[in-house]
Write a protein that binds this DNA or RNA. Structure first.
Lengths: 150, 150
DNA sequence: TCACATTACGTGAAAATTCACGTAAATAAG
DNA sequence: CTTATTTACGTGAATTTTCACGTAATGTGA
């Protein structure tokens, strides 16, 4: 047995999945910011609009959870969107601590435009990627998300 | 041919790759923030420390590019790290517009601790994921990154 | 019922990020 | 060489996010 020299083990970011995940997220939001500029929507509002796509009344904390942001940040984004006339809020009849957020007519209209923009960005980013690969990606990431401790 | 009702096409975030990518990134940084708290490093500093792992002298703009953040943000993070004694800066001898960032002894020490923490988080998050799957993920994401317009 | 903990949210203050702009150095054009 | 033009960075001001804390409503246990 010979001594190995005390060199550091090799390290390459490019082999590090979280490097690419963070990178793609950063560039994606940057791309969306540019693509959404013509219709005057910023990225936080876009994320909330998409969250409101599936359910009509969503609580502020559900929005915070879906977007992985702090509750107080979600409160502020909803306040801005309310000022812009995109959403309205009301206390939940079931639990009056809860603030339910829903789209206005203006918000409905923008939601569709925003979705179309997001779909074109997605199509370009995943050009040449098969449906099977996409699904594998989704389930792999869902698994990783589940194993990450909050 | 019969008319279809004017219902909206179904939409599910869970089928949307960027939903999971953004989600994993958010939770990853949240997890790292908690894991790094004992050694007093925040996520932006962690990202810069890892960027300095491969090369000893890195420009502020290269840091901004690697972390997908604005140049002025990178400037400010480096200023904070300098104040904390983790890095030092100097004008590049080749191009004096460039500010080269490098680790101090203190930064060197923390870099290794930080890497160990990041590796344990990675190991947990990718438990049960094969090397082949990880590499496929990396190359898929690298491709997506390349196709996203800045 | 009564005390106590928890949850959901809002808000002032602090911190981080970004924008807009300016400077200095390097490069390109003439 | 001279004059744009571009690039890299820093900085004050504005915006956004987050923290720390408070309040009100709900849940829980004795």
């Amino acid at each position: 047995m010979t001594d190995v020299p005390p060199t550091e083990p090799p390290f390459h970011r490019a082999k590090w999945p979280f490097y690419w995940i963070a990178r793609v997220t950063g560039r994606y939001f940057q791309t969306m910011e540019t693509a959404l500029e013509p219709i005057g929507i910023d990225v936080p509002s876009y994320r909330v609009l998409m969250t409101l796509y599936e359910d009509h009344h969503v609580s502020v904390s559900a929005i915070a959870d879906a977007c992985v942001i702090k509750l107080s940040t979600a409160t502020r984004i909803v306040q801005r969107m309310t000022a812009d006339g995109l959403v309205v809020t009301r206390p939940s009849p079931r639990d009056r601590r809860v603030t339910e957020v829903s789209l206005t007519a203006k918000g409905e209209t923008l939601r569709h435009q925003v979705k179309a923009i997001a779909e074109s960005v997605l199509a370009q980013a995943f050009e040449g990627v098969s449906d099977a690969e996409r699904e594998a990606l989704n389930s792999l990431l869902a698994g990783v998300f589940g194993r990450l401790k909050g």
